Simulated scan of single mutants.
Amino acid sequence: MTVTGTSDLDELVRPLLSAAPNATGAAVAALHRGRRTVLVAGFTAQDRVQPITPGTRFEVGSVTKTFTALLLAEMVRRGDVRYDDPIDHYLPPGWRLRRPAPITLEHLATHTSGLPLIPLTTMPRVLRTWFSNPYQALGPDRIRTGLARARLRSTPGSRFHYSNLGVGLLGWLLAEAAGLPFEHLLTDRVLHPLGLTGTGCNPTLQAVGHRRGRPLPPWLIPGLPAAGTLRSTAHDLLNYLAAHLSPHGTPLAAALTDVTRPRIPMADNDHLCLAWFHRVKPDHHLLFHSGGTCGSTAFIGFSPQTGTALVTLINAGVTLRGTFIQRSYDTLRALATLK
């Protein structure tokens, strides 16, 4: 195990390293009032050859959505697009959507477009590989066909419905607006400016994913990369969260501030920002997002009022009885109250 940091932070986050018995490796990083700690344990695969380090890349699944939202905010700042632009302005040639009312870019980023989780017409292909690589056969052509047939679950802007299709479509539209592939656009506008050199879409050189102890191939999502294709490290993700905590002085200061503004009210004191879930506590706020592929699980969160951030990564997929994400969230809450 490689450990750097301070003992009080270590004591709180160390139990997360063993919170997923099906994982061969884990990485946890935390920041609290200027103090940092990074803890790692295990190996990248069952052969126990390559140990986990702070620079080991993990699949982060839907954590990708927060990066896509930041890309949107940065493109709005530059004047490339506007939040209230109808998606028709940027749909690629041959793409169309049946809908009762206009859908905007902000609707996609806040899961209020009414679009389903994925196109229902693609479900037969998804179900065939549900426990290994369900999205690998869904390339752009199948997503385009599914989008044209998709029925909205609600009027755009009226209700929250979590949608991989919606955020994945947002990535396509931003790429069309910029004239660059999504992966290149995200790298140029977000990853490089923030110095996130260990983060990207390439599925090589990463911890091997596992489900119930069985190794899995790298997660592929060619038709919806903006919804869940990123790989990242504990080191990069902690720096990513640190930029959200202290945006001023970063190249993306305005965009980092904008993505954390509450936009959509939800139950109790919860809100949705641009992709980020926002929860109000008596003396602080929590912003967080989780991600899961078939073989990996990730959680990131931060509290602006207390200067707190937490990253947790394991190379084991989410299961119905798994508690890793909930334990990660509970640890973030505990860190936010640490004096």
Score class of each variant (00 low, 15 high):
261 R>S: 12
135 Y>H: 07
314 I>S: 06
73 A>C: 07
190 V>H: 09
243 A>N: 03
82 R>G: 14
160 F>A: 11
109 A>P: 02
73 A>R: 14
242 A>Q: 15
251 P>N: 12
214 R>K: 14
271 H>A: 15
52 I>Y: 03
36 R>T: 06
272 L>Q: 13
142 R>N: 03
325 I>V: 15
170 L>D: 01
158 S>W: 07
108 L>R: 06
334 A>K: 15
226 A>S: 11
170 L>Y: 01
298 A>K: 07
127 L>Q: 11
132 S>L: 08
19 A>F: 02
76 V>H: 01
94 G>D: 06
302 F>I: 02
95 W>V: 09
206 Q>R: 12
49 V>P: 04
284 H>C: 05
177 A>V: 13
331 T>E: 01
147 L>Q: 01
319 T>W: 00
14 R>F: 04
198 G>A: 14
308 T>A: 10
95 W>N: 10
217 P>M: 10
167 V>K: 00
71 L>P: 01
338 L>P: 03
183 E>V: 13
145 T>N: 13
189 R>N: 00
211 R>N: 13
161 H>D: 04
239 N>A: 07
247 P>M: 10
339 K>S: 09
226 A>Y: 01
283 D>K: 08
191 L>C: 04
292 G>N: 15
234 A>Q: 08
227 A>R: 02
103 I>W: 00
11 E>A: 15
43 F>A: 12
27 A>I: 02
197 T>W: 10
62 S>H: 10
36 R>P: 00
265 P>I: 11
253 A>T: 10
267 A>T: 12
265 P>S: 04
153 R>Y: 08
61 G>C: 08
85 D>T: 10
308 T>N: 08
316 A>H: 13
160 F>M: 13
72 L>T: 06
102 P>R: 11
64 T>V: 09
163 S>W: 02
97 L>F: 05
27 A>R: 02
131 F>Q: 09
77 R>K: 14
273 C>E: 05
260 T>R: 12
224 L>H: 01
183 E>P: 05
165 L>M: 04
257 T>R: 12
54 P>R: 11
3 V>L: 15
321 R>P: 00
